[in-house]
Write a protein that binds this DNA or RNA. Structure first.
Lengths: 248, 248
DNA sequence: CGAACTGTTGACATTATTCAACCTCCGTGG
DNA sequence: CCACGGAGGTTGAATAATGTCAACAGTTCG
């Protein structure tokens, strides 16, 4: 399980783990210096709320380590997760005063924050930041639309398989392994969080995970440690055409 | 029903109907001139496909008049609409060679197109375009996330009410009326298209429209002409908290 | 006139939800 | 040290919601 703290995270942008993927990815060294002047780190424990929807938000940030979620809640309590924030993902919206979603740390979380005002000014003068942000936002839009297909049209079983495949792919990517053959990873989400992401109830999630296990698509060690003996088999269960180019 | 053709659409950017909302909204007159040099119009009849997912796409475009849809299709034919393109909305993605979704004209459609290469170059040198595109993409991302809540957590009845409320709001906005009290508008979508948008079957759509009619939330004149005697009542049926700030 | 398209409705099947019981693990306070 | 409670998870039975299949009605367009 990821267990980073401030000590293990360099404060030098130069060797930041998300240097090449985050909103600062395209910055030249002089631009990076200006960012470095306004940045600061914040860390949160697993389970902590980062921001509540509707709250005033005076910063934007990049996830450095850990995982956070974006969720929307209806008056009667129905919840839908609308984003999973992984290292390098961007939080907040330039030009908006309040948060549109609840942001919650699901693992211990470190974020690289920028006060909104200076960041917005920097965006004006530094096209590389705006360019990268546009690129990232377009990617997120694609991911959101992929998720719309899942929510609108996939069966519970396909939804679970899709989520597992996405996490497996991302995990393989982080470990610099290819998403092929046998894969092993830890689920960063509880059954309830999975349900909130997939538009299901936690009971249905539990049942379908059990079903995939019963059918040999996955193996479980404890509740969170997943073994995928054959990744292609898992992908077949997602309903996507084989190559399925999800959110990396 | 909207029935525009090229004759009725000015070719002067200056009095273009989407001048103040489209990707060119922030451009100064000199920037506009450069855009004007590379732009050209295309029109499509209702029902025509603009682009197929996976096709090479050598242009980006703004919807000038009419309505188009963005849909994704699974191998076995399940379809999910992932976007509704209204006048001023942007089509295509700078930096991507092929279309990610099927784009279809649901009404007669006029688009203002830019060849991708020159547009991308212009984006580099014209921060106002990139800025506006970022803003629009962020708005679309919010709309997509709002839609994820609908797809994942709303009942069929709430889905229908939400769709009607969105169309009613947008329509009131176009006609410069306020979305209050009694509203009248035409549905731009067939029952099947509504189903594809809402993640339902067309039968369920038909049944729930009938139910809303039976309960006096809406009245029908023919199949497409909708009368909403009390907009607040409709909004109550959406499950959203009263102000619900959807996609404009 | 007939075919094709759009829409409605009914009967029935399926899927996922709801409600409830129960299990394991873990930390804490008596 | 262990009993207790809570959090996370599983499973079963009943139920509600939506999908499927099918018949049919109204329009439009050759």
């Amino acid at each position: 399980m990821a267990h980073h703290d401030l000590q293990t995270v360099s404060h030098e942008c130069g060797d930041c783990p998300i240097r090449h993927r985050a909103v600062c990815a395209r910055c030249e060294s002089d631009e990076l210096q200006r960012l470095e002047q306004i940045k600061y780190y914040r860390s949160y424990q697993a389970g902590q709320t980062v921001i509540w929807s509707g709250d005033r938000m005076d910063f934007v940030a990049s996830v450095v380590t850990g995982i956070a979620t974006l969720t929307q809640t209806m008056e009667d309590g129905r919840r839908q997760m609308v984003g999973l924030l992984l290292p390098s993902d961007f939080v907040g919206r330039p030009g908006r005063a309040t948060a549109a979603y609840d942001v919650t740390a699901t693992t211990d979380l470190v974020m690289c924050c920028f006060r909104k005002k200076p960041f917005e000014e920097l965006m004006q003068s530094t096209p590389h930041i705006a360019q990268r942000l546009l690129e990232m936002t377009l990617d997120e839009l694609d991911a959101a639309r992929e998720w719309m297909l899942l929510l609108g049209r996939k069966t519970a079983r396909e939804k679970i398989a899709s989520l597992l495949a996405i996490i497996a792919r991302r995990d393989a990517h982080l470990k610099l392994k290819s998403a092929k053959g046998s894969i092993v990873f830890d689920l960063p989400l509880t059954r309830e969080e999975m349900a909130d992401y997939l538009g299901l109830t936690l009971e249905t999630v539990s049942r379908q995970v059990s079903a995939l296990k019963r059918d040999g698509v996955i193996e479980l060690e404890g509740k969170r440690h997943i073994i995928v003996p054959n990744f292609d088999r898992l992908v077949e269960e997602t309903g996507d055409d084989s190559d399925g180019g999800f959110l990396v």
